[in-house]
Design a protein around this nucleic acid. Structure first.
Length: 279
DNA sequence: CGGCATCCCTGGGAGC
DNA sequence: TGCTCCCAGGGATGCC
């Protein structure tokens, strides 16, 4: 499911209910997500307090007291729901945290992780390990951060013979772009997804960097893109789906030139582009 | 090292 | 209505 804008939507919602609050009760229904959950996760979370909620690429980092991090990745089909009354759990609701203003106070919210395909994962580890954590240490810069630029793209794409679309999906080069926003950004940059990454230089690199930033910002503003699984934690869909220029629009007219949008498969993933604007 | 196929898992939609 | 097949916002892994 979720790329950077969807994860950012989740981060903001979690921050609003978790920061300066505590785990009054913890339920773990099954521990076999993408990887086996940490041992005794529910017991280790009970009574703990949240300080701040961050995001890195497609990961949510929930900072706990005692200098630990609860790490969340939603995989393809994971979603978070936040309730203010006790919810009825369905079979894909794997974790529920009851949140309160103190460990023993009355519940303020119920935070539920739902993940039908169980491609998501969770870890709990010391904050000091953040920079060396196996899943975090190789992530590229944040596309909405200061370290991201046309020069960065040109540098990391140098020497890559594969298509630029695949390079954009590589989390080690830039963190957070997935299959939807790779196609969308390439459309706005007027670059073919098939172009070799190494040829993205100069003005093309400038256009692509700007298009990535513009596309991600716009999607965050709209609460992300809801296709199948993504919902905002309060239950709202993400409205950016209505603004997708090319993703999922195979055969429909390009909004710029009316040429039919084309779909191709690159490394097993669908790419959508305008063969004229992005020739 | 880069690039590619394969695998993990369930559900929804298309087609028959 | 029911069956089969294919597809899906993820990434790790192993092979060339």
């Amino acid at each position: 499911m979720p790329e950077l804008p969807e994860v950012e939507t989740v981060r903001r919602a979690l921050a609003s209910v978790l920061e300066n609050h505590y785990v009054a009760a913890a339920f773990v229904g099954r521990n076999d997500l993408r990887w086996t959950l940490p041992e005794n996760l529910a017991a280790r979370l009970l009574g703990r307090g949240f300080t701040s909620i961050d995001r890195r690429g497609k990961y949510v980092l929930m900072h706990l007291d005692q200098k630990e991090i609860l790490l969340l990745h939603l995989g393809m089909s994971g979603s978070i729901r936040i309730h203010d009354t006790p919810p009825t759990l369905d079979k894909h609701d794997h974790i529920m945290l009851t949140i309160a203003a103190s460990p023993t106070a009355a519940a303020t919210h119920y935070v539920v992780l739902n993940d039908p395909r169980r491609f998501g994962w969770i870890d709990l580890f010391p904050a000091a390990h953040q920079d060396t954590h196996q899943l975090l240490r190789n992530l590229g810069p944040e596309p909405l951060g200061n370290a991201f630029s046309a020069a960065h793209l040109q540098a990391v794409f140098k020497g890559r013979s594969g298509p630029v679309k695949n390079a954009l999906l590589n989390q080690q080069l830039v963190a957070g772009i997935g299959n939807i926003y790779a196609s969308e950004a390439l459309f706005y940059a007027r670059i073919s997804p098939r172009r070799k990454a190494a040829t993205i230089k100069g003005q093309r690199a400038e256009r692509l960097a700007a298009a990535v930033v513009k596309t991600l910002h716009a999607a965050i503003e709209d609460g992300g893109t809801s296709l199948r699984d993504h919902i905002q934690p309060g239950g709202e869909i993400g409205y950016f789906v209505q603004r997708l220029a090319v993703y999922g629009r195979d055969g429909q007219p390009c909004q710029a030139c009316t040429t039919p949008i084309k779909m191709i498969v690159q490394s097993g993933r669908s790419s959508f582009y305008c063969p004229r604007c992005q020739g």
